[in-house]
Deep mutational scan, measured.
Amino acid sequence: GPMASDKRPRTAFTAEQLQRLKAEFQTNRYLTEQRRQSLAQELGLNESQIKIWFQNKRAK
């Protein structure tokens, strides 16, 4: 629909990254900035991508 703007492409996470994020989520529903930074480095992701993933996951 018209609401779907092309400005922010959805990140396609790899299965491996998703597995890691899910495991982290089961341990911590809320990430500290430090955890998020190390996860971002570990997974080669953007911190904001991880932050948003957690927000979306909590919203469900």
Rank of each mutant, 00 (worst) to 15 (best):
Q37R: 13
L39F: 03
R8F: 15
R10Y: 13
Q19L: 12
T14F: 02
W53F: 10
Q55D: 07
Q49L: 12
N56C: 14
A23T: 09
L21S: 00
W53L: 03
A4P: 15
R36D: 02
W53K: 00
M3N: 15
A15V: 11
G44P: 00
R58T: 06
G44S: 07
S5L: 02
I50A: 00
L21T: 00
R10P: 15
E47Q: 07
F25A: 02
P9N: 06
N56F: 14
G1K: 04
E16L: 13
T14H: 02
T32Y: 03
E16K: 11
Y30H: 08
P9L: 05
K7Y: 06
S38E: 10
K22M: 13
Q19S: 13
A15Q: 11
Q17D: 03
D6E: 08
S48W: 14
N46R: 10
R8H: 14
D6K: 04
E42N: 03
Q55V: 08
N56P: 02
T27P: 01
L18I: 10
K57G: 05
R8I: 15
S5A: 05
R58F: 06
T27Q: 12
T27D: 09
G1F: 07
R36H: 04
R10E: 15
E42M: 05
L39M: 04
I50M: 02
A59Y: 07
S38F: 10
A59I: 09
I52A: 12
Q49S: 10
K51N: 11
W53I: 02
K60P: 05
A23M: 09
E47I: 07
N28Y: 04
Q26H: 09
R20N: 02
N56W: 15
N56H: 10
L45Q: 01
R29P: 13
L21D: 00
D6M: 02
R58W: 07
A59D: 06
N56I: 14
Q41R: 13
Y30P: 04
A23R: 09
A12Q: 12
W53V: 02
E33M: 14
G1Y: 07
Y30C: 11
T11C: 14
G1V: 04
Q26W: 06
L45N: 00
N28H: 09
P9E: 09
L43E: 00
A59T: 08
E24H: 02
A4E: 15
Q55H: 11
L43C: 03
Q37W: 08
Q17V: 06
D6A: 06
K22E: 12
E42W: 03
A12K: 14
Y30L: 07
Q34R: 08
P2Q: 15
E33R: 14
E33T: 13
K7T: 14
L43N: 01
A15M: 09
Q19H: 08
A4C: 15
E16H: 13
P9V: 06
F54Y: 05
L18V: 08
Q34E: 10
L45K: 02
L21F: 02
P2N: 15
F54N: 01
R20Y: 04
R10A: 14
Q17Y: 01
A15P: 10
Y30S: 06
N28A: 05
T14G: 03
S38M: 11
E42F: 03
A15W: 10
A15S: 10
A40Y: 01
R20C: 04
E16P: 05
L45A: 05
R20M: 05
F25G: 01
Q19P: 01
F54S: 00
Q19M: 13
F25L: 03
R20E: 02
Q26G: 06
Q26A: 12
S38N: 10
R10F: 14
Q41L: 13
T14Y: 02
R29L: 03
R36G: 09
Q26F: 09
K7D: 15
Q49N: 05
R36V: 13
A4G: 15
R35D: 06
N46V: 07
Q19I: 11
R58M: 07
L31V: 05
F54G: 01
E42L: 06
T14A: 03
G1P: 15
F13D: 01
G1Q: 04
N46G: 09
G1I: 05
A23E: 10
E33I: 12
R29I: 06
E24V: 06
K22I: 12
T14M: 02
I52R: 14
A40P: 01
Q17K: 04
Q55E: 08
P9I: 05
L18Q: 06
R10I: 15
E47R: 03
N46K: 11
A12M: 09
Q55Y: 14
S5R: 02
A12S: 14
N56Q: 13
E16F: 14
W53G: 00
F54W: 12
E42Q: 07
F13G: 01
T11D: 10
T27G: 07
R29K: 09
Q49W: 09
P9A: 06
W53H: 01
E42C: 04
K57F: 07
I50F: 01
E24W: 02
R35L: 08
T32F: 02
G44V: 04
E16I: 10
P9Q: 05
D6L: 02
P9T: 05
R10L: 14
R58Y: 06
Q34A: 10
Q19D: 09
R35H: 08
Q17P: 00
